[in-house]
Design a protein around this nucleic acid. Structure first.
Lengths: 347, 347
DNA sequence: TCCGTCGACATGAACGTTAATGTTCATCGG
DNA sequence: CCGATGAACATTAACGTTCATGTCGACGGA
């Protein structure tokens, strides 16, 4: 039951017959210590298995070398890749990652912020649950730097790194627009900046391509995300919706899916109606999930630079930690259109 | 540049004209404080925006209310779901999660353990990178409880929660074995306990089903995992391998894939040979990724209870934190065979 | 020789909290 | 009326660091 007490600086100091302070400076690599004693101290510390106590350290230094990473849902492949990238980049700079999951719930987000405050993290990278304001303002008050990722809430003035979903979707639609008369967009029913950006891109491309807005449609798919399901956007939701709306007689020439899972469900609905892709309907996804290239037909989709988003966010954050007064930075990274069979007329 | 000093207990104490200690006890809900003063203190603390400093707290209490979560790769959907489940369960019990990613590298694993030690986490949930020993023994020495997840290293005597991959694969093979003459298993080339369990289950089922081991095959697919790619097991690797081995003339009756991504690549290779699934070859995956049900044909696969693994691991860990002397516990959860079109002879 | 300088170390305080131990004062039974 | 009791608070020390400041001796220049 006796938790074996950790080896402290005092223990090392006693062992070498010096003061705690000298040992501290020696191990920190500071001056005012002769090389000979430094070596002795290093050896003794290693022998005793000394490990610094980060809590004591941050209590006095005011820095924790921990950043908070607030994610809505790690099962979203894009966010999973983001987590990886952020963790790696942080580790490279000596920072650790405290992970908070909000499941799209404002209540959880509030608790997460509370945790971040009691922890006194040096900075935060967050995917905000939108529509609310008060949680994040507490971090502003505490002067803890925040970088928003993927979704922006410009009111707080935090740095932001995201995806230019509008340009991506617009490019995709324009690219395949030839001969299109009616286009549908299946979008998740969440009022977050990314869905709105995709819708805007979709509409813009319809206009620029001379496709009649009246004959086109934006369909909001209710998903079980908010319910805290561990899986994001299951294909089922989109499948149901598509199956209800699409018949062999009545269907668009082009369907854009707000994410690749939706595309999966829509593809199934189309098959069930006896409609062929790309013969009768062109299909474009979003996200380039690993399976996209292996569907039949292979799915045309937008590849998101998850890794670059993550590393850029960390870079922004650490630079701001170093210099809090630097001006706000914002970056939108372009997704890359990956054209495959599902959008090729010739096929 | 002046980091606005946090509100401390002292500040609250000064505001209400009481001692720090009384304020501490009042907010902690301990006795020795009258209800009236407790209310005053609570109100004042809220007004000033007092947030406890977890570092000061854990410095004196010796507990951190943080657990370490060591994951090889968050982009693996099973692990992503695991992260979600662990974080939720921890949060419910007042614990936070420090996330460390090892990318299957022993060096990273060593650094992760170092971090866990300096952080003084209360416990660790880890997917170990196998073949090495020394990192984990440091946690044993520090008396920090560990629960291994998904892959076991029994030597350390840590609690373990995993998947009974052997039974799962054996059941799957036995279930579809009727009329099978030759079966192949595509497995990842990593010497970890789960791949070995799947191989064992595969072999056992061949025997029990009277299928000739000589005519069957276990194929090791080299993947780019260890290289630190953010995507795990890309379908490409299995696709290449399958394309090299399979011809219309020479193919097995049944293919089992070590994971659903492999199944995706194999399916493509079969299509390219003009072989039909399930007509010519039956195909069984592993993992029940979200796309599995939406392939054409829908993929028969094993559904893994990721959430249950995660919550059980947390429960084991917290119980051990409470009572370090309790005996070692081990649990293997059964995957569930989800039969779909890819294994149905009738289709 | 004496004083100033500088390197190499020690001492003390502080970070914000909790726990152990003191202090004060009203109350109450005898 | 007096001592015991206990509620309600205060005081002090500790947790393991780091930082500012203090000390001491050797060394060099005049």
């Amino acid at each position: 039951m006796v938790r074996s007490r950790r080896v402290t600086l005092q223990d090392v100091a006693d062992a070498v017959g010096l003061s705690v302070n000298t040992v501290s400076r020696a191990l920190a690599g500071k001056s005012q210590v002769s090389e000979r004693t430094r070596d002795t101290i290093r050896a003794e510390a290693a022998r005793l298995g000394y490990v610094p106590n980060s809590h004591a350290r941050s209590l006095v230094s005011g820095r924790t070398m921990v950043i908070g990473l607030v994610i809505t849902n790690p099962s979203n492949p894009f966010y999973a890749a983001l987590i990886s990238a952020v963790e790696q980049r942080c580790r490279r700079s000596g920072y650790s990652v405290l992970l908070l999951v909000t499941e799209e719930s404002e209540a959880n987000e509030g608790e997460a912020v509370q945790q971040l405050l009691t922890y006194g993290v040096d900075g935060v990278i967050a995917i905000p649950v939108q529509h609310n304001g008060d949680s994040w303002s507490r971090l502003v008050a505490a002067k803890i730097p925040v970088v928003f990722v993927s979704r922006d809430l410009p009111d707080f003035g935090f740095d932001f790194v995201g995806i230019d979903a509008e340009a991506g979707v617009a490019e995709a639609v324009e690219r395949v627009a030839a001969g299109i008369d009616r286009a549908w967009l299946f979008e998740e029913d969440l009022r977050i900046s990314t869905t709105e950006a995709r819708i805007a891109g979709f509409r813009r491309a319809l206009d620029s391509s001379g496709i009649d807005q009246q004959r086109s449609l934006v369909i909001k798919v209710q998903t079980r995300r908010a319910a805290g399901a561990s899986q994001p956007w299951r294909p089922d939701d989109a499948h149901q919706m598509a199956a209800n709306l699409i018949t062999a007689q009545n269907h668009p020439d082009l369907i854009v899916a707000g994410n690749d899972y939706f595309a999966l469900g829509i593809l199934k609905a189309l098959r069930e109606c006896g409609l062929s892709v790309p013969g009768d309907v062109l299909l474009v996804g979003y996200g380039d999930h690993p399976f996209a290239a292996y569907l039949d037909p292979a799915l045309t989709t937008l590849r998101l630079p998850a890794e670059e988003v993550g590393t850029t966010a960390v870079d922004y954050l650490l630079e701001r930690v170093a210099d809090p007064s630097s001006p706000r930075r914002t970056q939108l990274l372009r997704p890359e259109l990956v054209e495959r069979g599902s959008s090729r007329r010739s096929a």
